[in-house]
Amino acid sequence: MAVSASRPAHPWPVRLCHWINVFAMVCMVMSGWGIYNASPLFGFTFPPAATLGGWLGGAIAWHLAVMWLLVANALVYLAWGTGRGHFRRRFFPLSPRAVWQDTRQALAFRLPHRLGQYNAVQKAMYLGVLLLGLLLVLSGLAIWKPVQLSGLVALFGGFGWARYVHFYAMSGIVLFVVIHVLMVLLVPKTLPAMITGGKEPNDE
């Protein structure tokens, strides 16, 4: 009798990229807050304990250094996910109707969760954070090299507007992280699976 081997819920490339991303995003956000504090856009600053770098020069150094790690990690993830069909299997199909139905179930705490399978809300959130990441990179490049990339700066409406876009995109990603952590706390079995790989449930 043939025995079907269960696949890991999260293949090792996904887990590796995930944890590299966790480290990189924490460093990027904290150093970004340090840069923001030097020239606030709004009437508040972030506590020094929540920043990285110690001063403006240090924050910029951290931001630029970790930026390359984040970009390299994203390129590896995108290449692997596209080549292995990961995105096609995990994120699609997706429809507004499915997102609405799953959102209602989630708010009522009736939405089931299966390791290795994303519901419509998760699919929408992951696709959304990928788009926010792209916006963050483009606006960051416009802020970093405003003279060399003047055309990109113009697309954002100017240097000042590029800073606002960068801030709001970062805020969107931070909000995603907060929701993501809350979901892990509500469904704690998902954390070990992101470390060990877990196993996809059999539908037999």
Rank of each mutant, 00 (worst) to 15 (best):
V3G: 11
S6F: 07
P8G: 02
P11F: 10
W12Y: 12
A24T: 14
V26Q: 07
M28T: 12
S31D: 13
G34F: 12
G34Q: 07
A38N: 15
L41K: 09
P48G: 06
A50D: 00
T51P: 00
A59W: 01
H63C: 06
A65N: 12
V66M: 14
L70Q: 13
Y77N: 04
Y77Q: 11
W80P: 04
R88M: 11
R89A: 15
R89F: 09
R90K: 10
P93S: 13
L94S: 08
P96M: 06
R97H: 12
W100L: 15
T103M: 11
R104I: 04
R104C: 05
F109R: 13
L111P: 05
P112G: 02
Q117K: 05
A120H: 00
K123F: 06
A124D: 07
M125G: 04
L127M: 13
L131R: 08
V137D: 07
L138T: 01
S139H: 06
L141H: 03
A142V: 00
P146W: 05
V147S: 12
Q148T: 14
L155T: 06
Y164G: 08
F167E: 08
F167C: 08
F167K: 08
A169R: 04
F176L: 00
H180Y: 01
V181M: 08
V181I: 13
L182P: 02
M183N: 05
M183T: 01
P188M: 03
A193N: 00
I195H: 04
G198R: 00
G198Y: 00
K199N: 03
P201G: 03
N202R: 14
